[in-house]
Amino acid sequence: MDRVKSTKRGSEPTPEPILEEELSAFVESDQSDPTSTETDAPIVPILEFDQVSKSFPGGYSAIDTVNLTILPGEFVTLVGASGAGKSTLLKLVYAEEVPTSGVVRFNGRDLTEIKRKHLPYYRRNIGTVFQDFKLLPQKTAFENIAYALEVYGKPTEDILAEVPQILELVDLDGKADNRPKQLSGGEQQRVAIARALILQPKIIIADEPTGNLDPVSAEGIIKLLLEINQLGTTVILATHNQGIVDNIGRRVVLLDHGHIVSDEMVGRYVTSERKPRPIV
């Protein structure tokens, strides 16, 4: 992983000249080492929600005037019941949805400024992990991870070098040639995480990554996410698994009906009604 860390994103070969500008625009403001937060220099938030609202046709409001700032290197857990707006909030980050009002900034840059055709390049800054893994069923674990690099135009020899390393990191070096169907849920999710990591994104977004997993696998996934965070990547985790949240001991943002109800630096899962916590 050390080798992976030392590679600067900005020096990556990029397929198109416009893209180079696009990417460097995101990278420039991010020269600060996320782990050395004690320096006096002002830190540009990696993510900023400024009065963001999102409503869908029919008047349903998923997110309502949310203000949220996430600094580089943070591990933020979004909690809330189903329909509280967690997924919508995350979709706004990887620009799958556009806010109805307000501004979402990535590294200080308004996401609505990104041209639609440049969105794929922007998305390479963000690793995504989902409840349903979203792996390509026809490809092996290796190919699924390699795909993220192929799309990026990486030379084949680099792909052949990098993918096994990342597979080792997620503890799947023996399963490189297995198709998703031949892997357990936990293994599939680790492939998905490896794929999210391979481009060394600024942020990893995990939307209910443990939703389909047994408690042991789930714990493994969370541990992996924490490890990744320790290496400097910002992690945003959305979950409604209370046991998991309470064990992480990091920042917890509670959403309810599209509003942020609480935001604690070392949080626990508390619903607004303070229900007793069930055993998970």
């Binding site: 055709k117 794929p120 390049y121 979203k134 026809q138 795909y147 993220a148 990026y152 481009l199």
Partner: peptide, 16 residues
Amino acid sequence: RQEFEVMRLVGASNLY
């Protein structure tokens, strides 16, 4: 169709 969604999320351009 689901694969196209995955491809887009991974950062594949529409042309790709």
